[in-house]
């Protein structure tokens, strides 16, 4: 499943990240979004998501979100 299936305000776990050697995905992991992370979907706006991750918030766009499989 992808993030698009998650409801606003719901929490999810990152199950799998595609292309773990892609520099952007590596940056994402370094920002704390890794396999196993618990994430909350705070807001959507057009092409972008706002996620909450521990004590930080992350904006990611939909194309990048396609690399993330959730459970």
């Amino acid at each position: 499943m992808g993030i698009e299936t998650v409801n606003l305000g719901a929490e999810f776990t990152v199950k799998f990240l595609k292309e773990k050697t892609n520099p952007v995905i590596r940056k994402l992991s370094a920002m704390g979004l890794k396999e196993g992370s618990r994430v909350k979907l705070l807001l959507k706006n057009g092409r972008v998501y706002l996620l909450r991750l521990n004590n930080s918030r992350l904006i990611i766009d939909k194309d990048l979100a396609k690399y993330i499989e959730v459970a």
Binding site: V24, K27, M31, S56, R57, L58, I59, I60, D61
Partner: peptide
């Protein structure tokens, strides 16, 4: 093509 958008949003 567009590069990816990922950014931290501070409080």
């Amino acid at each position: 093509v567009l590069s990816h958008f990922v950014m931290e949003l501070p409080p």
